[in-house]
Simulated assay, not measured.
Amino acid sequence: MEDIIIIGAGVSSIFFANKLVQENNNLSIRIIDKGKPLRERNCGLDKGLSCTCGEDCSKYIGYAGLGKSEGKFNYTNDFGGDLGSRIGGEKTLKLMKEVDRTLQRYGADSIERYSTKNKLLAAKAEKNGLEVLSAEVRHLGTKVAVDVFQELYETLKKHIHFTFETNIISIHPKAHSFFIETDKGNFCSKQVIIGTGKSGGKWLKKQMHELGLKTGETRLDMGLRIEMREDQLDSILKETFETKLRCRGEGYEATTYCMNPRGRVIRKFQNGLVMPDGQNKNEEKTESGNLNFTLFVPRYFSSYDKAMQTAQRIIGGINQDNGRIIIQRLGDFYANRPSSELSPNLIRPSLEAEPGNLVDEIPDLYLRAVLE
């Protein structure tokens, strides 16, 4: 019988487990994850090749979850979720500082933290109807992030049982405990914490139904990945590595996100979908002459199911069951015509994709945000 079982070994679960150990190292704790230990998480995508993992891609699933991808920690209430509205802005920032102290204790202090605050830029943006979102940032990069999380793992495994590459079949509440059935044996625990992240969404939906739990409103961020000339935004990037801008239009607000000067666009595999994602220029063999970022438009749905159905319908429709991603030149976008030949374009795309016409594949809301 365990005192606590944590389902999922992503970043949130790791920091939660670390806090438990700090407060009471006599607790019996087990973490169960369907992915692999950090040092065994290898995917062709890490080397610029194709994913060979199947649906459960090791680039995104396993110990440390997405914390491995580029190790970027934004400490702010301006963006990244609504925790501040739930527990208070000051308490949220206090917890973020605690996270940062933990990271430093395991080697993150080799990378300096920086601020994206810029009063002059904020004033200029306001005059043009934009809002600058700022944060304190510790951007570790993949290599340092892996080293930090591995050091944390070496400490945690002295106090915690880890069970990897294990699928949980069912969770059954019993008197003052839970019976957990898996494909690698069964476990009992006094308490269960679920931290499966987005990759565990389908599994969680099934478990919540069987446990009689209900979901609240779900936010879904989708948008276009934009690629442009590397020096085109020098006027706003000259003092900060990344600037997040929010603009508001009729019926929407849009935010720039994941800005990568001289980075590349890569394929991201998640929930059975394939999407364009940005990669930092500091990642091995990824530097390009372009800048890329995403323009996200959040929408709210009454349930997780409805949000995921929308994502599946739009992104899945583009993928056409073969990983298809479409690309369009800005001039063709303005002219509402498909891009048929990209070779004359001044911007050489860093990701090979199929030329097409966005208006035929993507809802107007996301296109209007880009145009405006």
Score class of each variant (00 low, 15 high):
69 S>H: 06
58 S>K: 10
207 Q>I: 07
81 G>D: 14
210 E>K: 05
183 D>G: 05
19 K>Y: 12
124 K>G: 03
24 N>Q: 12
81 G>L: 11
354 E>I: 15
86 R>Y: 14
7 I>N: 02
232 Q>F: 11
188 C>Q: 08
319 N>F: 11
271 N>W: 07
12 S>G: 04
342 L>R: 04
367 L>N: 06
6 I>N: 00
10 G>M: 07
356 G>V: 04
139 H>W: 11
61 I>H: 03
271 N>A: 09
58 S>M: 06
96 M>N: 12
334 Y>Q: 13
94 K>W: 03
307 A>K: 00
245 L>Y: 03
224 L>I: 06
32 I>A: 14
240 T>W: 15
128 N>H: 08
8 G>Y: 05
266 I>G: 02
297 V>C: 11
332 D>R: 08
176 H>T: 12
371 L>S: 15
204 L>A: 01
129 G>K: 06
203 W>V: 02
219 R>Q: 14
354 E>Y: 11
136 E>L: 15
273 L>R: 01
311 A>I: 11
280 N>H: 07
16 F>Y: 05
58 S>I: 10
232 Q>A: 11
238 K>R: 05
22 Q>Y: 15
357 N>D: 01
113 R>I: 04
31 I>Q: 01
35 G>N: 06
237 L>G: 06
116 T>P: 02
210 E>A: 08
284 E>T: 07
211 L>R: 06
126 E>T: 10
106 Y>K: 08
122 A>M: 14
296 F>Y: 14
370 V>I: 13
261 P>T: 01
250 E>A: 04
333 F>I: 13
153 Y>A: 11
46 D>T: 00
272 G>S: 13
250 E>Q: 12
214 K>C: 06
65 G>D: 05
199 S>K: 04
127 K>P: 15
277 D>H: 10
194 I>S: 08
116 T>E: 04
105 R>D: 15
178 F>Q: 11
13 S>N: 09
104 Q>T: 15
80 G>R: 05
71 G>R: 00
183 D>N: 09
348 R>M: 12
105 R>T: 08
88 G>W: 02
86 R>V: 08
293 F>C: 11
142 T>L: 09
89 G>W: 02
282 N>V: 09
327 I>R: 12
233 L>Q: 10
10 G>Q: 03
24 N>W: 10
137 V>Y: 02
231 D>H: 10
206 K>T: 15
310 T>F: 04
284 E>D: 09
193 I>G: 09
187 F>S: 00
32 I>H: 12
119 K>C: 14
366 Y>N: 08
329 R>Q: 05
53 C>M: 11
76 T>K: 03
33 D>M: 06
53 C>G: 08
